[in-house]
């Protein structure tokens, strides 16, 4: 380890001890490409695909949560290992605490309802709109899914078009197909 890397690690430890590590992040490799994972003391706050631009996602965290952002891989070990299990087909739901502060208002309500779509199943945008008690808000459900701050972990990939076609996905259409295929196979 280089000296600066060792100093960085020491800084992360001191920051955590002093309650100054507002946002910890790391990247992990996955079958749907590199994923950015970020957490606050409250829980996992952001998952971002490479196509969503990790630098832009970190800037958004800096603007929306706190600029006290540090790369702290160990702070996300639990999330990384749950994701490994998920991608290996050995995990159907995530246990890590979630911090949903990046989804506000109606978007928040949609994000909170998504985990009720069971692993390996899908629901239409209209069905999710009905779940949230706003059956006419089909288009807004689409927007809320596209802006889901915690894709994969909060399963917006299980929301599909009424005709059964997958529809769009923030991580790219291929990523959505891959996740749906993974859950069918397992």
């Amino acid at each position: 380890m280089t000296e600066l890397a060792a100093l960085h690690e020491r800084l992360v430890r001191s920051a955590a001890d002093e309650g100054l590590l507002d946002v910890a992040y790391r990247t992990v490799d996955s079958p749907v490409g590199p994923l950015l994972l970020a957490r606050t003391p409250a829980g996992l706050v952001r998952v971002a695909f490479a196509v969503q631009d990790h630098d832009a996602a970190l800037q958004e965290l800096s603007d929306e949560v706190s600029p006290r952002v540090l790369e702290a891989p160990r702070a996300l070990d639990d999330v990384a290992s749950e994701l490994d299990e998920y991608f290996a087909g050995r995990r159907e739901a995530f246990d890590v605490p979630l911090d949903l502060r990046l989804a506000r208002g109606f978007r928040r309500s949609v994000v909170e309802h998504l985990p009720s779509i069971a692993y390996g199943r899908t629901a239409s945008y209209a069905q999710v709109a009905a779940l949230t008690g706003s059956p006419r808000a089909v288009r807004a459900v689409g927007t809320a899914c596209a802006l889901n701050p915690l894709p994969v972990v909060v399963p917006c990939h299980r929301v599909v078009r009424s005709d059964g076609s997958p529809g769009r996905y923030a991580g790219g259409d291929d990523a959505k197909l891959a996740l749906l295929a993974l859950e069918r196979r397992a």
Binding site: L4, L7, H8, L11, V23, Y25, L58, Q59, L61, S62, D63, P67, R68, V69, L70, E71
Partner: peptide, 15 residues
């Protein structure tokens, strides 16, 4: 717009 502190460490740590 304030950039993430990690960038500050990366850019100015050596100096």
């Amino acid at each position: 717009m304030t950039e993430p502190f990690e960038r500050v460490v990366a850019r100015h740590g050596p100096t």
